[in-house]
Every structure is written in C-alpha cells, then in structure tokens.
Design a protein around this nucleic acid. Structure first.
Lengths: 333, 333
DNA sequence: ATGAAAGCGCTAACAG
DNA sequence: CTGTTAGCGCTTTCAT
C-alpha cells in the first residue's frame, strides 16, 4: 500500500496522531473529527501498516503454532487440522494472525520456537504436542515467553494448557458399557508412553475398581502405534484367550482394525468403541461408536488462553474440553 | 528481545550501518570487522527485529496461504496438510515464514486475501483452491499482488500455478487397464464442475478414443460429492446395468465405497482404482490401487514459484507435478 | 571500507 | 480534544 496515516491526516485536516487515536478507538475524540477521519480513511482506502505498528507497539498480533510433520497421525487423523481451524476461529474473532511451522524432530521443534521467539515475529506460541521432559516448554519458561500447550504437560506448574479429561472420558465409556450389562471389556491401546494413553488406561482401570469388577490383565493389549493392522492383530490375540462382550480402543484406527477382524470372522455380539471420532468412523460398517474429543475446541480455547494472557494478562491456568460419546451401530448390543 | 543492532555496534566498536552490512552479507567489508561483528552478535545473542526490517524493506518474508475450512474433504483427505507441509519445507529452506487463514465462503476467502494484501503483512499469497471465475484471482491481479494458485485456474493468463496433469494421469490409468486386457471400464466421479474432475473425465474419454474403444455413457457416473456412501451407491447402480471388469474413481473415498459394495455382495474380479492415494488406501481390504498426486510437491513448488517471483522476479508460469500410480491388491486381476 | 544521518509508518508522551 | 515531537530498529544513500 502507499497511503499512510499522514495522507489520511492531510485529507482530513488533522494531525497524524489524531488519526491514530481514531483508529485506536480513543474516547477523547469528538464525534465530528472521528467522522471526518473515518471518511478520509474510507475515501483513501487506508489500511494501517502492521510492521510499523509492531515496531512501536512491541507486539505483532501474530500467534505462532508448531506442528509435527512426521507423525503418521498427522495424515490419518485430522486432529491437527481441527486444532488449526479452532485456533483460526478464535484468532479471527480477536484480530490475530497465525503463523505455523512444521517440525520433524524435537530439535527442529526447539529451533523453530527459538526462531519465533528471537525474531520477535510472534507474540505467543501454541504447542500442539507435548513431550515428557519437553525442552521447548523449559526454553519458553526461561525466556518468559507466552505460550499455551495443547495436551497436559508433565509438569503443569506455570504453564497454560488445554486438554480433554481423558481419564474421565474413558471412565464414562466403561460406566456406560457396564450399565448396558457388559462385564468382560477388553482394552486396546497404543503408545503407552503418552499422557493421553496413560490417562485412558487409568480411566479403564478405575472404572473397573469403582464398579467392583476385577481387571483382567489378559484383556489389556497395548500395541506400538495407532494403526489399523495392529488393531486387527490385537483383536485376534485377545479372542485367542478371552471372549469379551465389548472392546474399547484408544484410537479409531485401532477400532477399525479390531472391527474388521470381527467382520471378517463373522463374529457377532461384540461392541466396539473408538476414540477421536474421525470422519471415517461414521462410514464404517458397522458405524463406529467413538469418543469425540472436540479438537476444534481444543484449538479455540488454546488461542483464547493465549490471547487472554497477551492482552489482559488473565491467567486461566487451563481449560478442560468436554468429550462426547457418539453412539453408533458398533455398540448396538 | 532487547539487544538491538546498536548494542552490537557498540560491542564491536563499529557503527550500526556496518553491522547491518555484515548481516546483509555485503562484500565491501573487511574480513576483520566482519569477524568482530559476528563475534559480537554471537556474544550478545543478537537477532534482527523482523518488524523493523520489514518497515524499511517493504517486505516481510512472509507467505500467506488461504485454506477452505468447510470442505468435508479437508478432514477426510490430508491433501491440504500435505500441501502445507510442502509449502513449509520450501519456506524453511528459503527463510520465509508462513501465515494461514481459513475461509468458509468465497466472500470470506476474498476478505481474508484483502486483509493480507492491505495489511502489508505478507509478500505473496498461495491459493489452495480455485473457483471458476475466481474473484480472488481477479482481485490479486488488479492489485498486482504476487500469488500462486494450486490447481489450474480457468484462465491461466498471467497467473502462476502448479498442478498435476489430471488428464494425463487418468489417461495413463486407462492405458494400463487396457493393456491388462480390460475392455469395460466404468467411471465414478464427483463434483463435475471442478477442473480436476473435468480433466480426469477427459482423460478417461480420450484414452478410449485413442485406443479405439467406444465410450459407454451408462458406464460413466457422476455423483455430487466425494463420499464413501455415494461411491457405494454408484457401484450398485452401475452393476444394475453393466458388468465392467474395472472401475476408475476420481477419488479414494468413492473407491472405498465402490469396493465395499463389491466386498459386501461378494463380487470378485472387478478391479478398482482410486485417486489421491490417501493413507487409508493401503489399509483397505483389498488394498486400494490409487493415483498419488504428490500433494506435498504441489505445495513445495507453489512456494518455490512464489519465492522465485518475489526475489528474482523469475516467472515460471507453471509447474506440472508428476502423479504416480500405486498398484495394490484392488487391481490384481 | 566505514560512519553519519535520514526515514520507513506508526504510537505515545507531553503540551496546550 | 488535538497537535508536536520523539523515537521503535533497521537499511541506505551520501560522505569520507
């Protein structure tokens, strides 16, 4: 653009600072000049130069977000896309821009973050993955740079985070299944080192305890990754030893695999529940019952927390996003 | 950050302008002072302030990308994520940052673009969708603002774009099937108003002509959207009237549906080919043969074109990205 | 080969 | 309520 505040000032016969005030919405400005200025802005089609504004303000109104690019999951599970749309929604509502970077390794993640911090290009950062002993969190804390984590970090002290209550979510699934009369419920999980995996398994166990049922370790299977074929094999393995009436999986892909084993062997009467409610869940045959984790909301509230901290220094330490059990054919038993 | 160029200058006993020159890699600087300055930079952990640089340079080194947020496709097909990783890769290589916005409607898309253009926040824009009679393209052309389109636009005059050769890709699929002895090949497509759909259908038809086979209009089915259930129905409908030995689908989801109909009815001996090679394709039973469109490359070259235009004003009018037929079980006939 | 100085467009005291 | 002025941190002539 070529038209600057000076031009507007001249056009409206006021000083640049008055124009600035009108734009900032200062109250100590007469309605009259406000109108004059706004008209001039309109007429000249003036738009503020963000770089100049950033320079004086020491803030850019840009949020940086860092995303894993290698995770298999990135492509099979629209989680990150949902998160991004959620962030985008809040950002648009509050006039923020969004920048993103992908990283392959933890080192790349750290250097991406350092780059953001050092360049003064973003006001705050949203982390979409948490590692145990996360170096990035440590770095950001040391620099005292505003950030929000999606997913509960190892050490929640002094960090803003947003997550589902994965314990509760799984607990409720079990409660529901118990209420329906199920007594033998198998568990298929993956990536047991992740917090979310741990929480879901705890929910599974606690539900058993609370309801007075024994936990059968042979009914608990943990595989290495969220993949259909691994779910398929896990189901097979479980059926070799046990005959559950329901199976809960910590991920839809695992559930797809488990389900397809049942379909293939024509085994009826076993309910299956997945997690994440990915779009394909509803197109499975039978359509898969799944826990929706509201990834978009996770993004939305992450952005909200960050902006709140940035603008009002309000520190809601964390948000818990509701999960919803979406019941479909796979639990019609 | 707090350490500015001035600080570095003082630390190195030179003037700020010298520091600036060292950073810019000016040649008219003695090795000695170059070293002195670099040491000071290191010692102080100095990082240039991008906003200030943008203000003087009139460029931000930021690329804006606009993405549809409503398209069902966004969540079922990792196309956009792949594109984003590709853009990100080139951007990182060339020192650019990336900003994104989602839009729901064409109006939102346009206003997102106007926002980018007006705010001087981005140097160029990548459009990930093309509408016929795209207002955004028109706007950007009028403003003479640098942009690249992923997908071939209606009118390619004066626009930089990158795309697959969808005609060729489908043509080659057909040629392969003909060579394998197939003579009755059905077509299931969707969204016939899109350029990619048109091109793929043309490829299908041209392959018939070139190879001297008649086109049977009853074997061509176009549905409204890329959905599994619609593919399922289409397959059913085709089999009511015809008995093809192969079916080509313009999208994997359509192919999944078509395939599941065959599995359900236990119909053997019909080959199926999909398009896009989404990750789930390889986990289908039977694993789906599909055309990989290299979405990541599309993004990579889109970014490259844009940066080339920005920095060297080199105008490669377009890139064509290779497609690859990934053969799996579904064409083992 | 290096320094001095002006200016990019905006905001925020400080005056009045 | 509004204008004047002084920077924000960097690049870039223009000198030397």
């Amino acid at each position: 653009m070529d038209v600057t505040m000076k031009d507007v000032a001249k056009e409206a016969n006021v000083s640049p600072s008055t124009v600035s005030r009108v734009i900032a919405g200062s109250d100590r400005i007469s309605e009259e000049t406000k109108k004059k200025v706004n008209d001039a802005i309109e007429r000249l089609n003036y738009h503020p130069n963000i770089a100049a504004r950033s320079l004086t303000n020491k803030m850019t109104k840009v949020i940086g977000i860092v995303l894993p690019s290698e995770a298999e999951h990135l492509f099979k599970n629209p989680f990150f896309i949902y998160v991004m749309t959620g962030i985008s929604k809040y950002a648009q509502e509050s006039g923020y821009y969004i920048m993103y970077t992908f990283f392959k390794t933890e080192e790349e993640k750290l250097s991406a973050i350092q780059n953001y911090v050092n360049s003064n290009l973003v006001d705050g950062i949203i982390l979409t993955t948490v590692h145990s002993k996360d170096q990035c969190i440590k770095y950001l804390q040391e620099k005292d740079f505003p950030f929000v984590v999606i997913g509960r970090p190892e050490d929640t002290k002094n960090v803003l985070w947003v997550d589902n209550d994965n314990f509760q979510a799984m607990y409720n699934v079990l409660r529901k299944l118990f209420m329906k009369g199920h007594r033998e419920i198998a568990f298929i999980g993956a990536k047991s080192e992740l917090n979310v995996s741990k929480d879901r398994l705890s929910g599974y166990k606690q539900a058993h305890k609370t309801n007075g049922f024994d936990i059968d370790e042979k009914s608990i299977l943990e595989v290495e990754d969220f993949r259909e074929d691994l779910g398929y094999n896990a189901m097979k393995k479980i059926l070799n030893e046990r005959k559950p009436t329901a199976v809960v999986c910590t991920d839809d892909l695992l559930a797809f695999g488990a389900s397809s084993y049942l379909v293939e062997k024509n085994i009826k009467g076993i309910s299956i529940v997945g997690f994440n409610n990915i779009p394909l869940a509803e197109y499975q045959k039978p359509a898969l019952t799944s826990v929706d984790i509201n990834a978009k909301e996770l993004g939305y509230y992450a952005a909200k927390m960050l902006v709140d901290k940035l603008e009002k220094d309000i520190m809601n330490r964390h948000y818990i996003i509701e999960t919803n059990l979406i019941e479909r054919e796979s639990t019609n038993h």
